Amino acid sequence: MFNIKYVAAGATAIALMASSAMAEKVLRIQSVLATSSDEVTMLADFGKDVEALTGGSLTVEILPAGAVVGPRDIMDAVDAGLVEGGFAWTHYWGGKHVAANLFGAPVAGAGVGMDNIAFLSWFQYGGGKELYDRLWDEMGVNVKGFMLQPVGPEALGWFPEPIESMDDFRQMRFRAPPGMVGAAYADIGVPAVAMGGGDILPALEKGTIDAAEWCCPKPDSVFGFQKVLKHYYLQGLHQVVVNADMYINGDFYDSLSDLEKKALEVASTASLSKSMSYRIYENGKALKDLTENHGVILEDTPADYFTEYMAAAKNALQEASDSNEFFAEVWQSQKDFADIAVPFWAGAQAANASLGKAHADTLK
């Protein structure tokens, strides 16, 4: 006869062993940012969703910038399996493949007016995700990518004094993003300097640079730019949309169960919406605090910025399209999408923007 006590004990032991085995899968994600950043706050929320959806069989551990490798080496580290995951913006890897710029930060809205919401529509329903999944093979890395945080539009940036025209702007040593976005600034004569987010404030304090952009009111205020500069310009074209994403080593991803893979997919899709919702409110609160409590002055961007920067952006896009077949395919997909979606979206948003500005003017 079976001894029920031994059977129960054996079942408990097996369950504990299974639970222990399930909990052994840890996805370590090294970020390009410190753990105090807004982006990492949202990444942590993504990690909680993954753990909940998998019942704890897959957990996410976030490592700060420099924990394993330097920020510029994250993609290579994930490719080699030194760390299971990385978190950055895909345009950071434009040196590996120029098409990365079209997924991370399509300069000037890909030249066709795509904002963060329109980009998300293209990504989810206009063929963008299928092209994104091909990017890693085109780049030659053993990586599975997940887009997590579409943000935008980004502010033009912070200045020590008002700029009345592009001639004033060209006198400033300006922190700009890497890749095609920064190159377009250089093309119109702005002395553009690329550097990591944590290096910007020290560079401003030392006078290494005169002006800077990073993102938006909340992340900018976390870095403390308001301590040095007081003139803030919200309207810019350089990053109408910018996407932070996660990269997982291909072998680690292949080792996951179907449930765990589906959890990553579902959690990343939820993150796309959560990050936009989070940022709108957080940026609103931060802008109110900056202007009311820190002496920050909102300025209007000079009109000649838009014409000069857009011309440089379109030239850069065309040159890259002429020289790289995959870039041309992705950009054509974005343009085809924009031909259908942007006339509706831009028209609808114009009315809403006018109404919103009228409300904002009553609060001045």
Score class of each variant (00 low, 15 high):
Lys5Pro: 00
Val7Ile: 15
Thr12Lys: 09
Ala18Met: 07
Ser19Arg: 09
Ala21Gly: 07
Ala23Met: 03
Val26Cys: 05
Leu27Asn: 05
Arg28Met: 06
Ala34Asn: 15
Ser36Cys: 02
Asp38Phe: 12
Thr41Tyr: 14
Leu43Trp: 04
Leu43Cys: 06
Asp45Val: 11
Gly47Val: 06
Lys48Pro: 06
Asp49Gly: 05
Val50His: 02
Ala52Leu: 10
Thr54Val: 08
Gly56Ala: 02
Ser57Leu: 01
Leu58Thr: 04
Glu61Trp: 02
Glu61Arg: 11
Glu61Gly: 01
Ile74Thr: 12
Asp76Leu: 10
Asp76Cys: 02
Gly81Ile: 13
Gly81Ser: 07
Leu82Pro: 00
Val83Cys: 09
Glu84Asp: 07
Gly85Asn: 07
Phe87Met: 07
Phe87Cys: 11
Thr90Val: 07
Tyr92Thr: 02
Trp93Ile: 00
Trp93Leu: 00
Gly94Tyr: 00
Gly95His: 08
His97Glu: 01
His97Thr: 01
Gly104Asp: 01
Pro106Ile: 05
Val107Gly: 03
Ala110Thr: 13
Asn116Ile: 03
Leu120Ile: 09
Ser121Cys: 03
Ser121Arg: 14
Phe123Cys: 04
Tyr125Ile: 13
Gly126Asp: 11
Gly126Trp: 08
Glu130Ile: 07
Glu130His: 10
Asp133Ser: 15
Asp133Cys: 11
Arg134Asp: 10
Leu135Pro: 02
Glu138Ser: 06
Glu138Arg: 15
Val141Pro: 00
Lys144Phe: 03
Phe146Leu: 15
Met147Asn: 12
Met147Tyr: 11
Met147Glu: 13
Leu148Thr: 12
Pro153Phe: 01
Glu154Gln: 03
Pro162Thr: 06
Met172Tyr: 07
Arg173Gly: 02
Arg173Asp: 05
Arg175Ser: 15
Pro178Gly: 13
Gly182Thr: 01
Gly182Asn: 00
Ala183Arg: 03
Tyr185Trp: 14
Ala186Ile: 00
Val190Phe: 03
Ala194Gln: 07
Gly196Gln: 13
Gly196Glu: 14
Gly198Thr: 11
Ile200Met: 14
Ala203Ile: 04
Lys206Val: 04
Lys206His: 08
Thr208Tyr: 08
Asp210Trp: 05
Ala212Asp: 08
Pro217Gly: 11
Lys218Ile: 01
Ser221His: 06
Val222Pro: 06
Phe223Ile: 06
Phe223Ser: 04
Gly224Tyr: 05
Gln226Leu: 02
Leu229Ser: 09
Tyr233Pro: 01
Gly236Phe: 02
Leu237Cys: 03
Asn243Tyr: 02
Asn243Ile: 14
Phe252Gly: 02
Ser257Ile: 10
Asp258Asn: 13
Glu260Trp: 06
Ala263Ile: 07
Ala263Met: 10
Ala267Gln: 11
Thr269Asn: 13
Leu272Asn: 12
Ser273Leu: 09
Tyr278Met: 09
Tyr281Asn: 04
Gly284Gln: 11
Gly284Phe: 08
Leu287Ile: 12
Thr291Ile: 11
Ile297Glu: 12
Glu299Ala: 04
Pro302Phe: 00
Ala303Asn: 12
Thr307Phe: 03
Ala311Asn: 10
Ala313Gly: 06
Lys314Asp: 05
Ser323His: 15
Glu325Lys: 15
Phe326Pro: 00
Phe327Ser: 05
Ala328Met: 06
Val330Gln: 10
Gln334Arg: 10
Phe344Ile: 12
Ala350Asp: 15
Ala351Met: 09
Ser354Thr: 15
Gly356Glu: 14
His359Pro: 00
Ala360Phe: 09
Thr362Ser: 13
Leu363Pro: 01
